[in-house]
């Protein structure tokens, strides 16, 4: 029996009057890569954005139900969004490094969350080396930490966006189609990176690319019209889909 990292119960979400999530109850296991697949507009990204409550920044959102991350309901009134988002970071479709140097991008989270006296240079240097090493950028960038992050290649930018989360020691990393702006090599590099991070972080990845879900995830969630249709081990879902709607989608007859 594996630990659960995220559980939701009867999660419903409305954008103004439009219901984007319907009675979503899922259990995401700790340390695994779980992929979310489904046709456009099925609520994958919405569900992802629920997990650090960043949805609330995008306008009129009403949510009911509960989301527990490591046992704590994140809709409890005593939850601090700042602390929540520190633990649950997100990576976007287009790499979005801040218009700062590579170094400042990596320590950005520390600067935001730390008291001034905790931010000695040595500690920051160490955090940068650790984070960049984890994502495999250290050797390439150690002599160029002062270059603007926006001048890096896209693949490096995306890795940097992942590295930016790591100094905050997140529990969960949410990835919203992290490879759709990258070429084949970039995609493979990011997938390998996710694989190497497995076990330490719980990762949720939204993808339009079924082959990617199949290659890169341990478990897979198929969503349709705001509902969870099927959630099983990736292998099982693709080889023996239980629900006819899943079968239609993965065989390419729908979507």
């Amino acid at each position: 029996m594996m630990d659960l990292s995220i559980t939701t119960r009867d999660l419903n979400l409305w954008y103004a009057k439009f219901q984007a999530l319907r009675q979503v109850s899922v259990e995401i296991k700790h340390g695994l890569i779980t992929s979310l697949i489904g046709p456009s507009g099925c609520g994958k990204t919405t569900l992802l954005r629920c997990f650090n409550r960043v949805n609330e920044r995008y306008g009129y959102v009403t949510t009911t139900g509960e989301i527990r991350i490591l046992g704590k309901n994140i809709y409890d009134p005593d939850v601090s969004l700042v602390e929540l988002r520190k633990s649950v970071g997100m990576v976007f479709q287009r790499p979005n490094p801040l218009p700062l140097s590579v170094y400042e991008n990596v320590v950005f989270g520390l600067r935001i969350h730390g008291e001034r006296h905790e931010l000695e240079r040595a500690r920051l240097d160490e955090a940068v080396e650790k984070a960049l090493s984890e994502v495999g950028l250290w050797d390439d960038l150690k002599d160029r930490l002062d270059t603007k992050a926006s001048t890096l290649q896209l693949e490096q930018q995306q890795k940097l966006c992942i590295a930016r989360l790591l100094p905050l020691k997140p529990e969960v990393i949410l990835l919203d189609e992290p490879c759709s702006a990258l070429d084949v090599d970039g995609t493979r590099a990011i997938e390998e990176l996710l694989f190497s991070l497995k076990g330490r972080y719980t990762m949720l990845i939204v993808t339009h690319n079924m082959a990617q879900a199949r290659r890169a995830s341990d478990e897979c969630l198929y969503m349709l019209l705001g509902e969870i249709v099927e959630h099983r081990r990736t292998e099982d879902l693709f080889l023996h889909p239980q629900d006819p709607r899943t079968a239609e989608y993965i065989e390419g007859r729908y979507g």
Partner: peptide, 19 residues
Amino acid sequence: SFREACWNVGATRWQTIRA
């Protein structure tokens, strides 16, 4: 996307504005 990057590491609005 710059603002999103900040929000998602837990920056407050003021920190986002300033940085």
